[in-house]
Design a protein around this nucleic acid. Sequence first.
DNA 1: GTCTATATCGAGATAGAC
DNA 2: GTCTATCTCGATATAGAC
Lengths: 232, 232
Amino acid sequence: MTQPDPSLDLTDQDLSLDDEAHLTQAGCAATRDLVFVAAERLFAVHGFQKVSVRDITAEAKVNLASINYHFGSKDALLLEIFTRRTAELNRARAKMLHEANAAHAGKPPVRAVLHALIAPPVRWMDPKGERLISVQFLIRARSEGTDQMRDILRTDVSHLRRFSDALLVACPQLTPEEVYWRLHFSLGLIHNNRFAEFDRLNTLSGGLTREDEVDLLIQRMVNFAEAGFLRA
Amino acid sequence: MTQPDPSLDLTDQDLSLDDEAHLTQAGCAATRDLVFVAAERLFAVHGFQKVSVRDITAEAKVNLASINYHFGSKDALLLEIFTRRTAELNRARAKMLHEANAAHAGKPPVRAVLHALIAPPVRWMDPKGERLISVQFLIRARSEGTDQMRDILRTDVSHLRRFSDALLVACPQLTPEEVYWRLHFSLGLIHNNRFAEFDRLNTLSGGLTREDEVDLLIQRMVNFAEAGFLRA
DNA sequence: GTCTATATCGAGATAGAC
DNA sequence: GTCTATCTCGATATAGAC
């Protein structure tokens, strides 16, 4: 077994194309990508364990043996989706934090740091975009992932380190302990953005809450998290 | 199929005894309760789908057929654990909110409402208590539950309604829409309290964060959420 | 009520033809 | 690369003896 690169921070792999953009010369998507897209969607909607390779190959309209041929196993397919999407997300976050650093002489305020942390995944939630399922997949991975994925999530914190470092600088009045906890709380806001939780919120609010206005939602989330950080 | 009572708010069922307290006259725990406790623990630690009835009966040291005899099916067992623990949790929350209402002439401040929402599940997380696995089970149910459990979670919001009502009263300066969102964010703090997330936080902080000091953790969480609510 | 043995099914993986 | 057919395993559930 080859070990996958544990760093999901900034990878060298090609992440530039949307899934559907990998086209064969004949104009139809390659089997491998059909499987990738179908699997991501089914996993995101129904959960990892409830979706079988048969479900995936049926959805992708490819042969049953395709998954093992192209990916080796169902778990390897899961891991590849996870690593690719995680790398994309962390790259977007790193880019925004980098820009915030550039705009504030290396010492961005709390709000800018939180915005770089929160905005990328919430932008993905836009129903008008094609990334809604990707972010649902990643949220699911946090609780339903394979052992390998869980180990990566637990131990690979390199992408978070630069955010915690920036927050430590931006909040000198807080103890480091307190900064780490508040970062944890802020991440909790993001991880709670599941379909089912939105549904419940809509039930409770009588339809008042619109999760499809992503820019407004980002503002609400950043406001909430920032207030938590600024508190003495 | 008999429909279980969808209201998990305040039920009439007996919730007064700890699991291990149901003892037969011979002094050994009844099979049914052995199964219940073992199943809750394994589900909480490993997830619902990854645990088989064989794992459970082996852990409980009872016969393989016990689950189907006493509960009907694996899913029915899951649902019973879920409904019992949810009812217990909501009862504790309702009691605290009731007390806050009594102490503040029916108009408790935001902090008291949030405390009633947050303190019960976080108290359960005390490693010195016996409820740590119960709260991990309930957190898992939010993403890994059966269709029936998910439906209950999505549609049964009666226990949340009294909290949103209290917050609407306590925050007249906010639009209802904003209040519902901030309640959603506050719940996100709670749902993020998984073993794996604590592990990651500990990795990131170099062991600075101690999740076993529950009273301190409750204060941190209430502080964070309250600041988010008080913001203009 | 409890246990052994088994029925039945669906899963992931693979062999081998094309 | 792709497909069909199949292997093998582990799951839930149940029948029937005690």
